[in-house]
Design a protein around this nucleic acid. Structure first.
Length: 897
RNA sequence: GGGCGCGUAGCUCAGCGGGAGAGCACUACGUUGACAUCGUAGGGGUCACUGGUUCAAUCCCAGUCGCGCCCACCA
């Protein structure tokens, strides 16, 4: 017997362990059932469960559990991501607390520390996923740095290198001066800054009293200027093109060049060009063969002694660092440059200037465009098939609008900088000979062999110290986790996956790159569908952030209301294309839903409603039972279709509505008189039907609320072992369970009971008072129904008797139901004025409706152009309302007469 | 600058060419043996605004206003 109260915490932990021990989450590579695959986006090992995880994981778990119970061999592939920068930062911070620096340890010892940390605390998020009820195939869990995945990474790197799709290049990167690494464009976030615009005067070389004004937000970079650009069509500067200015402070001659990049509308129309410290200037420099002068070290401090000069076919500029600048931080250098211009009378003005400045998303410091050697991946080549695959529908996005985002980015994709100056990650499999020759190979031995073949024996190789961008290994996740490059049975069976579920924020980081790598190495898309879900926000729609203090911890909600309630909340709110505002009140509401279902199951137990072996829902005869069986069958169709279309909220809403309103509020109330009936056959049928319908609810709700439904499923067996719901393949239902006649009949009963209840409430009839219902003008069908459902109606409407009448006693309340008039004699309690008023209101409502419809019907165009069915439907509605109006009017006349 | 999305009941949101819906909140009544984490009934909306298409617009189109997000740029 179930406990009197539903306490989720008690049952959830026990239930999960039981599932896991029983291997209920396992895929079966040897199965002959059709596979269904979802690749879990591997959370960072440093991560802890937040609302975004809770949503994405719940949705995936719902799909997996749903498909599992449809009989598919479901693989939900779990794992964690090594998260290069994030993890390195966490471990560095821990070490710093003990006063140990990364450099003190040295690379091997540091990496060892990271592995230790991972072993101790890296599994936290995995346990949190268990609490949420997630059912991935845990024994298959992978880590992006484990040996198999590392092998895949090396193989991919080497192959892409040999194909010329990975190469080394010296160009500007987004340099993080705090973390001392390059980061990709995607890891840069623009932040609004209240800056200044300094207008600096550069004297002409051949006429020092004439100056050319340039405006800049970064005066310190003038130390590395190698030109001034003006627009070729700008008449103000036409005469200056080809001449030179003498750069103050460094005393360097630099040319005035004509370039479209200079915008006559901006600033003075003349722009300083610093190719080594600005992405646009870098391009201008290339076009004009300008030298690139790097003025900063890796901390973004001015170099000591000499600047580094690269390229350029102009005469070699002076590379000496001006007196007093060496070693200055970029902001100190800025102050000093401005002071020097001011002292020389070359500072024209300073304007306040609000703009955005790129910052590192991890470090939070301003990014420095910096000239370095890095490894790049030719993303444009890899993107072409990935674009085609989506164009051709081999992978589709749901909702479809995200395809545009994908296309826009893919069609403008930039070379992907894949090297990072970190210690934690996949070290790049490239070795350098003393002469600078590069040997890329999967192992040092192979690299050495290649080097010796090329350079002769006794070569000493030095391995590239950089590691790969974390997303490089993530990009391989859909096949590396299945054993690639080996042709494992799992790889053949589970690739490509069915659906990838993720948030829009990583379409670029991850989805696009999995598409590229999957197509290139597997020759097929990694997944058929990409379902993009919304962001989770707080109750007011604010993005959750630690700074705002509005972060809701999903585990707190689990503690308070249970994992099932949280899951149901998220699924119910997961409408496509809209963010989810979550509030604890909402979760409490779904906890109440769980309680409701719990109590419904208790009711079933108390009334011996047990599942009956061999029960055939098509065989039931009582209209009540035929009706609920049909409704339950229809619900299954609704839920299946909703989930097929990733309309999670519709699936959840449909079950909620059916379970609470249809099943609990109406059907279970109907069963109360039925179960007390003298007809033993009817009692048995009703018990069996009730149990059967509850089973269907549990079955459909199981993917969303696995704990509750599993527990109730077991309890309904009443001691008998029914097996676990999690792996009970759903039984097929007989066709044609819907019975329109029974549905119409029960709908009539519902309307009758509701009508009487409303009248009672409006006439202030005490709930305890049992009334007599008189029915006037009832047709044969009405009479039959009244007779057939007398006990139901009497109980639910709180009547003591039902009778037919032709006359209407004085002091009665009246209402209209179809062709019949319902009369409730209230002799001693009736307030005639109140009844008149009530009927008047009813009539007014109906007349308003009639007026609307008649206006429509009076329109000749409507009759001429609207489909006949629509016209007929409106006429029927009008006639129906008119009948009701007439009967209400007659009722009113009787009250007044 | 380019793109995407959203303005529907007090709040949070579904719906989406022919009858305005849910949950929460609110009001009244209620311990009828599943459930007060509940039941019954009720109040509450010119579906942002303006035009257009249509026999018919909350729904389609255009524009306006407001809000949010993404991308690019910002000397």
């Amino acid at each position: 017997m179930l406990d009197k109260t539903y306490t989720p915490a008690a049952l959830e932990e026990r239930q999960y362990d039981e599932w896991e021990r029983a291997g209920a989450f396992a895929s079966d590579v040897a199965s002959n059932r059709a596979p269904y695959t979802i690749m879990m986006p591997p959370p960072n090992v440093t991560g802890s469960l937040h609302m975004g995880h809770a949503l994405t994981m719940t949705l995936q778990d719902v799909l997996i559990r749903h498909q599992r119970r449809l009989g598919r061999d479901a693989l939900w592939q779990p794992g964690t991501d090594h998260a290069g920068i994030a993890t390195q930062m966490v471990v560095e911070r821990n070490l710093a607390a003990d006063g140990i620096g990364r450099l003190d340890l040295g690379r091997p010892a540091f990496v060892e520390k990271v592995w230790e940390w991972k072993a101790e605390s890296g599994g936290r998020i995995v346990d949190q996923l268990r609490r949420l009820g997630c059912s991935p195939d845990w024994p298959r869990a992978r880590f992006t740095m484990d040996e198999g995945l590392s092998h895949a990474v090396r193989r991919v790197f080497v192959e892409l290198y040999r194909q010329g799709l990975i190469y080394r290049d010296k160009r500007l990167v987004n340099w993080d001066p705090k973390l001392h690494t390059a980061i990709s464009d995607l890891e840069v976030e623009p932040r609004p800054v209240d800056g200044k615009l300094w207008h600096l005067r550069y004297p002409l070389a051949d006429d020092p009293r004439t100056t050319l004004t340039v405006a800049t937000t970064r005066p310190e970079t003038m130390l590395g200027d190698t030109a001034v650009a003006v627009h070729p069509d700008d008449p103000r500067y036409a005469a200056l093109i080809g001449r030179h200015v003498r750069l103050p402070i460094v005393d360097r001659l630099i040319p005035i060049v004509a370039d479209d990049y200079a915008d006559p509308e901006q600033g003075s129309g003349a722009v300083k060009i610093t190719p080594a410290h600005d992405f646009n200037d870098f391009e201008v420099g290339r076009r004009h063969g300008l030298a690139m002068i790097n003025i900063f070290d890796r901390d973004a401090r001015v170099l000591v002694d000499r600047f580094e000069v690269h390229g350029g076919d102009a005469e070699a500029p002076d590379r000496a660092v001006p007196e007093g600048f060496g070693g200055l931080d970029r902001y100190a250098a800025r102050t000093k440059v401005v002071a020097a211009f001011e002292a020389a009378g070359l500072l024209e003005k300073i304007d306040p200037h609000a703009h955005t400045v790129p910052h590192g998303d991890r470090s939070g410091v301003a990014i420095e465009p910096w000239l370095t050697d890095q490894w790049y991946c030719n993303a444009a080549v890899l993107a072409a098939p990935a674009i085609r695959a989506v164009e051709e529908g081999r992978t589709r996005f749901v909702p479809k609008t995200w395809e545009k985002t994908y296309f826009d980015w893919m069609r403008n994709i930039q070379p992907w900088c894949i090297s990072r100056q970190l210690w934690w990650g996949h070290q790049i499999p490239a070795w350098y000979a003393p002469g600078g020759e590069v040997f890329v190979a999967e192992t040092q031995a192979e690299a050495l062999a290649a080097a010796e073949a090329a350079l002769g024996p006794e070569v000493t190789l030095r391995r590239d110290e950089d590691v790969l961008d974390t997303w490089f290994s993530s990009a391989l996740w859909p096949f590396s986790t299945l054993g690639w490059p080996d042709e494992t049975p799992a790889l053949t069976r589970y690739y490509p996956g069915d659906v990838l579920v993720t948030g829009f924020d990583i379409i670029f980081f991850w989805v696009a790159r999995m598409m590229m790598m999957g197509l290139h190495f597997m020759g097929d898309v990694p997944f058929a569908t990409v379902y993009i879900h919304a962001l989770v926000r707080d109750a007011q729609g604010q993005k959750m952030s630690k700074a705002k203090g509005n972060v809701i911890d999903p585990l707190d909600l689990v503690d308070q209301y249970g994992a099932d309630a949280l899951r149901m909340t998220l699924v119910s709110m997961a409408a496509q294309g809209r963010d989810i505002n979550i509030s604890p009140d909402r979760v409490a509401g779904y906890r109440n839903f769980a309680t409701k279902l719990w109590n419904a199951a208790r009711y079933c137990q108390m009334n011996d409603c047990r599942p009956v072996h061999g029960f055939d829902p098509a065989s039931v005869t009582a209209p009540v039972n035929r009706w609920i069986v049909g409704e339950a069958a229809a619900l299954r169709g609704t839920v299946d279709q909703a989930l097929d279309g990733y309309r999670f909220n519709e699936a959840a809403g449909g079950i909620y509505q059916f379970a609470w309103a249809t099943f609990c509020d109406w059907y279970l109330e109907f069963t109360k008189p039925l179960l007390a009936d003298a007809d033993a056959g009817l009692v048995a049928e009703t018990r069996a039907t009730t149990a059967w319908v509850l089973d269907r609810i549990l079955e459909l709700l199981n993917p969303i609320m696995p704990y509750l439904t599993e527990t109730l499923w077991a309890s309904m067996g009443d001691g008998e072992d029914r097996g676990r719901l999690i792996d009970a393949v759903r039984p097929t239902l007989p066709d044609g369970l819907g019975d329109p006649a029974a549905a119409a009949e029960m709908d009539w009963v519902v309307r009758l009971v509701s009508t009487i209840r409303t009248v009672r409430a409006e006439m202030n009839v005490p709930p305890s008072a049992a009334l007599t219902l008189l029915v006037r003008d009832g047709g044969p069908e009405t009479r039959r129904r009244l007779d057939a459902h007398g006990p139901l109606i009497t109980r639910l409407a709180r009547l003591e008797a039902i009778a037919e009448t032709a006359a209407v006693p004085g002091g009665a309340a009246q209402a209209v139901l179809d062709e019949a008039t319902l009369i409730l004699p209230l002799a001693d309690v009736i307030d005639l004025a109140r009844e008149r008023e009530r009927l008047g209101r009813e009539i007014a409502k109906v007349e308003a409706e009639i007026a609307k419809i008649e206006a429509k019907l009076a329109n000749p165009n409507f009759r001429a152009k609207a489909p006949d069915t629509v016209v007929a439907e409106q006429q029927t509605r009008r006639d129906g309302y008119a009948d009701i109006r007439d009967r209400l009017a007659a009722a009113l006349a009787r009250v007044e007469g």
